[in-house]
């Protein structure tokens, strides 16, 4: 059965999987690049990586890959609802990662809104929002690593 084969080889080697991996890796890299780390720790000195010390560039890269992740998430939800909900369901790991991705996207969209002119937040609210976003990012990295090491797929056959 097709869905069982997806479960056996969890989401790998599909265009969706590669795009998701690319978006998560680039979002993590550009996201941590919002902190002044890459110049201090010589990452920007690596040939071809000078851009990583330019905060405006990493900001744009973060937006571009956020758009990709939002597109993938929307596709995944609608694809599941329209074509797969009777044959597959989220595993516990898949459910946890879905909630984390949703939190990441929601907090990220609030931060995008915050960046518009005319939008301001009290310092405590901005700091809370930023650390919430970073917290979701760290949680996704941990959940992703746990899933990778434990070979836990997103989906299971019903």
């Amino acid at each position: 059965m097709k869905e069982n084969s997806i479960q056996a080889k969890p989401d790998s080697k599909t265009a969706f999987w590669y795009l998701y991996l690319a978006s998560v890796v680039m979002l993590a890299f550009s996201g941590f690049g919002q902190m002044p780390l890459y110049k201090r720790y010589y990452i920007a000195d690596i040939p071809g990586m000078a851009w990583s010390a330019d905060f405006y560039t990493t900001h744009l890269v973060h937006y571009i890959f956020s758009a990709l992740l939002i597109g993938l998430a929307s596709y995944a939800v609608f694809h599941h609802v329209l074509t797969r909900k009777k044959s597959v369901a989220l595993t516990t790991s898949g459910y946890v990662r879905s909630v984390i991705v949703a939190g990441l996207l929601f907090s990220g969209l609030l931060l995008v809104t915050y960046n518009f002119s005319g939008v301001s937040l009290p310092m405590w609210a901005a700091a809370t929002l930023l650390f919430t976003h970073v917290g979701f990012a760290m949680a996704l990295i941990v959940a992703g690593l746990v899933a990778l090491i434990g070979r836990k797929p997103w989906l299971k056959a019903i």
Binding site: Y63, S74, A76
Partner: peptide, 14 residues
Amino acid sequence: ALAIAPIAGIAAAV
């Protein structure tokens, strides 16, 4: 682009 992204994703799924 962030506003267009979900539309693109949904269109692909549909």
